[in-house]
Design a protein around this nucleic acid. Structure first.
Lengths: 128, 128
DNA sequence: CCTTGTGGTTACCAACGGGAACCAGGTGTG
DNA sequence: CACACCTGGTTCCCGTTGGTAACCACAAGG
């Protein structure tokens, strides 16, 4: 093991550690997809819904509320004819997106290797 | 928006995109905690259970099975007296841990700012 | 009047996750 | 020999979570 690689930094392993609680929240698929989408620029509720395939209104409003509370996005309501709600990423949220980028890059570049590993695993467990 | 920041890289927004499926899997709290723990060195089942507070045997074995299938860790069974099962991270898994590190660092350094934002939000929604 | 669009909330139900019991197989103890 | 105990799981039960779809309010358009 390469000395202090992953263990003693803060204490993410304690269930009561606030960093762990935050990590539980940002290591969430809808949060990641929403933040990366919003890092492209402000977007309205239904635009987000159309952009991110498979997200339900429920999870969309719920996750948006959550990341708004965390200070990662701001919610602006324009009292126009059909009321228009725009979500904008904050500098704090932009910082998180930068931190998430390596993970997304990894998923994109290493995906094929993972697929190969999965096939090998399935073949192994198939034969016994 | 800073040109190609978050949108057109692959197409993580399509539900059928394999990268999105992989992202859904690695953006998971137990996966993140397990991989970072194992990046410190091989560890046995119950050692992992003791180290990561709050994880159930069920989720532990389930998540370990999953990341083993993904080629991120290897599972070695030693037929010793009480059978001993050791999990070791693979080079592929180590690469992912490196990619996850910025996210964890962000959580640790920006946590206080998030806490402030939450208090502000709660105060706002409380009064109005 | 009904339909379309906005941004949600709510009811209902399936699926996921946690807790604890149970399992297998050998070891130590009385 | 019976019994509890260690290992690493799996299974059962149940509560919480998330998905589906309906409903809400409001205004424009036909």
């Amino acid at each position: 093991m390469t000395a202090s690689s992953g263990g003693e930094r803060g204490n993410v392993y304690a269930a009561d550690c606030p960093t762990r609680l935050l990590l539980d929240r940002i290591a969430d698929k809808w949060t990641v997809l929403l933040l990366t989408t919003l890092s492209d620029g402000p977007m309205r509720f239904n635009a987000l819904k159309r952009r991110i395939e498979g997200v339900s209104q429920k999870m969309l409003s719920q996750t948006l509320r959550q990341i708004e509370r965390d200070g990662l996005v701001t919610r602006r309501v324009e009292p126009s004819v059909p009321v228009s709600v725009t979500y904008t990423i904050t500098p704090l949220g932009q910082g998180l997106v930068q931190a998430l980028r390596p993970m997304i890059d990894w998923a994109e570049t290493r995906m094929s290797e993972v697929a190969v590993a999965q096939s090998a695993y399935d073949a192994r467990s198939g034969e016994g």
